[in-house]
Simulated assay, not measured.
Amino acid sequence: MNFQENEPLFSSKLFLYLSRILVLFTFSIIFKSFDHTFVNDLRVMDVRGWTFSVVYVVFGLLVWEGAVWLARVLEKRIGGGSASRRLTVLCCALVLYGMLAAVGFGFLYAITDILLFHRYEAWESFKRLSYDLNFGIFMFYLLILTFNGIIYYYTAWKEYQVQAERLKRENIQARYDALRNQIDPHFFFNSLSVLTNLVYKSPDLSADYITQLAKTYRYILDKKFENLVTIQTELDFLESYLFLMRIRHQQSIQFRIDIDEKIRSKGMIPPVSLQLLIENAIKHNRFSSADPLVITVNSEDSCLVVSNHIRRKASTEISSGIGLENIQKRYALISEQGIEVLQADDMFIVKIPIITVT
């Protein structure tokens, strides 16, 4: 039996009470079998034996509920105290309650045995406050409380797990949102400086530039609260971004994209991942119209591969900390898969996993 699939059954009140009845009935049989001072000739499964078990189970259920109620009342009244004080008061109260329950059961069974079977053995044991009788019942009471404590703390542990998992997800989402928020203004202000120069030279091209810039920034705003987007959606965004880069750098940068159509429509990646990798390549490499920087994006196995030749600048700008580290952290927050960064000969290669959602 799969416990997780049947957990609602195990957590139901019906299962709780049935388990209590089973435990109490088992204790009643054990008690009848070994406590000879209770009733010397009591047979375990005759009418009197069944009567004893029924009384024991019914009384035990009432005592059980009373112990739960007492624990709740004490927890409520001394909830503001220290943990040690609360535990001490609770244990002392339950021990005293257990003593009263043991005496109460001895009296109840003695009266029942007299009224129904005209037997006085139990009454004589009760009048003498028989150590075996009362201590035996008290020990069974403690066993019941122990069983109840296991159930209680298991339930509390499950609730703690659910709460901890919820807090973990909220924390992950908050960290992910913080990473995404870093992306918003990243290249926008750089683009404005290009537009300032372009608007005087070519009004028509400036209009196209503004349109593509608006599409780019709208994509970031629209996808801001999404953890994953399809690769095709990301490529549509990338087309607008690459238009801006071509205007800014002319023929100094070339882009080659070769991704299978099925992967485009089915595969998913965190939004703006490809843009960050391309921007990272542009930032850290030198290029010119005579010796352009070629950036390739293609699919390989279950990854997207972004690669370019390494042409390190003599003086590199101070990193803003967004690039590769940002992508790595975003993948760590949403998937067990991570990005892979390789430097082979004069090539810089980044592999980002394609995530499939079923």
Rank of each mutant, 00 (worst) to 15 (best):
Q4E: 13
E5F: 12
S12Y: 10
S19H: 09
V23R: 02
K32M: 13
R43L: 12
W50Y: 12
V54F: 15
V57Y: 00
L62M: 11
A67M: 10
L70D: 00
A71V: 14
V73M: 13
V73I: 13
K76C: 14
G79F: 07
A83R: 13
R85L: 10
V95L: 15
Y97T: 01
A102L: 04
A102Q: 01
L108V: 11
I111N: 06
D113W: 03
I114D: 03
S125K: 08
I137R: 05
T155V: 12
A156F: 09
K158Q: 07
E159W: 10
Q161T: 08
V162D: 03
Q163S: 08
K168G: 06
E170T: 13
E170S: 14
H186L: 15
F189Q: 07
N190H: 02
L192S: 06
L195I: 13
S202F: 02
P203E: 03
Y209D: 04
T211K: 13
Q212W: 05
K215W: 10
Y219F: 09
V229N: 00
Q232H: 07
E234L: 02
F243L: 01
Q251N: 11
I257H: 06
I259R: 03
D260S: 14
S265R: 12
V294I: 11
N308H: 09
T316I: 05
E317P: 05
L324A: 03
A332D: 08
L342E: 05
Q343L: 06
D345F: 15
M347H: 14
I349L: 11
I349M: 02
